[in-house]
Simulated scan of single mutants.
Amino acid sequence: MLKSHTEEKFVQAILYFAHSTQALGKIKLFKLLFLLDFEHFRQTGRSVTGLEYRAWRMGPVPAALVQQWDQLEEGLRDAIRIVPEQVITYWREKVVPLQPFDASHFSKRELRLLEAIAQEYRETLSDAMIDMTHAENGAWAKTWQEGAGNDRVIEYRLAVPDDASDRDAVLDAADLYAGIAAAQRR
Rank of each mutant, 00 (worst) to 15 (best):
A64V: 09
V61C: 00
R57M: 03
F41N: 04
G59Y: 09
H40R: 12
R57L: 07
Q67T: 02
L72S: 07
R57C: 00
G45R: 04
A64I: 10
Q67G: 08
G45S: 14
D70I: 00
A55Y: 08
R46L: 03
S47Y: 05
A63F: 11
E52Y: 03
Q71V: 04
R46V: 02
L72M: 11
S47A: 15
L65F: 11
P62N: 09
E39G: 03
T49D: 01
G59V: 01
R46Y: 01
T44V: 07
E39F: 04
L65A: 08
Q67I: 01
Q67A: 15
H40V: 03
L51V: 09
G50E: 01
G59T: 03
Q68G: 05
W56M: 14
Y53R: 11
Q68W: 04
W69P: 03
A55L: 10
M58Q: 14
H40W: 02
A55F: 06
V66I: 08
T49F: 05
E52V: 13
L51Q: 10
Q67E: 15
R57V: 03
L51W: 06
M58C: 01
G50L: 03
S47I: 14
H40L: 07
P60R: 02
L51N: 11
L51T: 12
V48A: 05
T44W: 01
Y53H: 10
L51R: 13
A64D: 13
A64P: 08
M58R: 15
F38N: 06
L65S: 07
S47V: 14
S47C: 12
W56E: 11
Y53S: 09
G45V: 11
A55C: 11
R42W: 13
R42V: 10
Q68T: 15
L65M: 07
R42P: 10
L65N: 04
R42F: 14
F41C: 03
Y53M: 04
R54S: 00
R57D: 11
E39K: 15
Q43G: 05
F38C: 01
M58Y: 13
M58F: 12
S47P: 13
G50A: 04
R46K: 15
A55M: 12
G45P: 08
R42C: 13
G59P: 07
A64E: 15
F38H: 12
A55N: 10
W56V: 00
E52G: 02
D70A: 02
L72C: 05
V66R: 08
G50F: 10
L51D: 06
F38T: 01
A63I: 14
T44R: 06
Y53F: 15
G50N: 07
L65Y: 08
A63M: 06
L72K: 05
F41D: 01
R42I: 05
Q43Y: 08
F41A: 03
W56I: 01
M58P: 00
V61P: 02
V48Y: 05
Q68S: 11
F41V: 07
P60S: 05
R42S: 15
A55T: 09
Q43D: 09
L72W: 02
F41K: 04
P60D: 10
V48S: 08
V48R: 03
F38K: 07
